[in-house]
């Protein structure tokens, strides 16, 4: 086993465990959010192993940083305590088991068929995953989606302001 595969299994296991913990901590939302941070950071580790350095940095800055901080703000603003959720109903346990069984089933099926069907991994081009290559590619081949994303953000801002502003005059 190479160093890469050891690291991969460590990050993958960590992200799985913390994702499970996040779902398990339904009654303590802050702990759930913190487990989500661990998932995000382990995913960033996996991205580094895949040579996607820029994506890994963005993953930590945007997801583990900005978005999770936003989550925590909202959680603290709402000030949820465990008794806000009401009693546990029996069917919730049943749903959990059913959901877990379905997820496990899909996992097993995919495990059985995936290794033979994935396409060959190509040789990495020079500078793969770096700022320069991604930047050039974004503003040449993918310039249309980038511009559309600009308008998308504008639409989201205008929509949020019009829906959330206290009073419109």
């Amino acid at each position: 086993m190479t160093v890469e595969s050891v690291l991969f299994y460590a990050f993958a296991g960590l992200s799985l465990l913390s994702a499970l913990a996040m779902v398990g901590f339904v009654r303590n939302v802050v702990a759930g959010a913190m487990s989500l941070v661990v998932t995000m950071i382990s995913l960033a580790g996996i991205y580094v192993l895949l040579e996607a350095h820029l994506v890994a940095v963005i993953q930590i800055m945007v997801y583990a940083g900005a978005i999770l901080v936003l989550f925590l703000f909202v959680i603290m603003l709402l000030n949820l305590r465990s008794d806000d959720f009401g009693p546990v109903r029996p069917w919730q346990g049943v749903l959990k088991v059913v959901g877990a069984a379905v997820a496990l089933g899909i996992f097993v099926v995919l495990l059985g068929v995936l290794p033979d069907t994935l396409p060959e991994v190509a040789e990495l081009p020079e500078g793969f995953g770096g700022f320069r290559v991604i930047g050039v590619s974004l503003f040449t081949d993918y310039v249309v989606p980038v511009e559309v994303a600009g308008f998308l953000l504008l639409a989201a801002i205008v929509g949020a302001v019009i829906l959330a502003k206290r009073s419109i005059d």
Binding site: Y142, V144, P145, V148, A149, F151, L152, A155, A156, V158, G159, A160, I162, L163
Partner: peptide, 20 residues
């Protein structure tokens, strides 16, 4: 990629319009 960006640029303003 363009399909998805177009879909979102279509949907997000309409979410806001529905709650206008």
């Amino acid at each position: 990629i363009a399909v998805f960006m177009g879909l979102e640029l279509m949907s997000i303003p309409i979410y806001a319009l529905a709650g206008f």
